[in-house]
């Protein structure tokens, strides 16, 4: 099992407040890793470190290493734009751009300078198919993406992230703003996509984590308490506190 990404002793400080106290975690390729933990435990913050979305925040200091294919993404030679093409992201709220579905999915390719119309069309179709939204959009690709339902919008966003063929896709509670039916559709989409991409997902929904993930990492108060295969974690966690959390005794 090769690791696509690996975090080594990642610490993050907002001013004097340390939000992450040294997290080390490896992400195996073509697997879905779920980051779970109570609100405010730092799991979303950690996720955003993985494609450097925290860089804009004032007064932030990140130490440690995050290796993507063996290279530290916080190294000064790393180009942010290139990094984000390899590590895509889907947010909690569906965030389609206010223009057509086609332009939404083609966005990443176009800003990367792809001019070849056929390639763009082909990629858009492929990505929409991968995100299991092709049937609902194929007849109205020119329709404004905002005109679709929340679940459809989120799948368009997933298609948009997939269109640039990232190595890793970060998912920040991708279903928490959606109804149960849309959520389960997204889950099915993810299950199917696991063969091709590496996913790292933050979720509050423990059942969801148990259904779709291969590896689970439990974070609390900015620390990685335990990580392991989903089966191990849910059936025989090594630590009492993990057991308590997974069984709903707190959090």
């Amino acid at each position: 099992m090769t690791n696509v990404m690996e975090a080594k002793n990642v610490k993050l400080k907002y001013g004097n407040f340390e939000a992450l106290h040294g997290i080390s975690l490896a992400f195996p390729a073509q697997k879905l890793t779920a980051l779970i933990g109570p609100s405010g435990c730092g799991k979303s913050t950690f996720l955003r470190c993985l494609n450097r979305m925290n860089d804009d925040i004032d007064d932030i200091k990140i130490t440690g290493e995050i290796l993507l294919e063996g290279k530290d993404i916080y190294h000064s030679h790393i180009d942010l734009v290139a990094l984000r093409k390899k590590v895509g992201m889907v947010f909690q709220q569906p965030t389609p751009f206010p223009f057509s579905v086609f332009d939404n999915v083609a966005y990443g390719l176009r800003i990367a300078g792809v001019k070849d119309k056929e390639l763009i069309e082909q990629r858009v179709e492929e990505s929409l198919k991968q995100a299991a939204i092709w049937n609902e959009t194929k007849d109205n690709l020119q329709r404004n993406a905002l005109a679709f339902s929340g679940g459809q919008q989120q799948r368009i966003c997933i298609a948009r992230a997939l269109a640039i063929r990232p190595e890793v896709v970060l998912l920040d509670e991708p279903t928490s703003a959606l109804d149960p039916i849309s959520s389960s559709e997204i889950e099915e989409t993810l299950m199917a996509l696991k063969q091709k991409y590496t996913f790292i997902m933050v979720t509050h929904n423990l059942q969801q984590a148990s259904r779709v993930s291969d590896q689970v990492a439990f974070l609390m108060n900015g620390e990685l308490i335990e990580s392991g295969s989903t089966q191990e974690m849910f059936l025989s966690p090594k630590k009492e506190i993990t057991n308590n959390y997974l069984n709903g005794r707190f959090g």
Binding site: F97, Y107, G108, I111, C157
Partner: peptide, 19 residues
């Protein structure tokens, strides 16, 4: 979030503004 989504797709600030 719209701006963040754009930069998460590898857009520079100016690309995000313009597009």
């Amino acid at each position: 979030d719209l701006r963040k989504s754009s930069s998460a797709l590898g857009a520079t600030k100016w690309q995000t503004i313009y597009h």
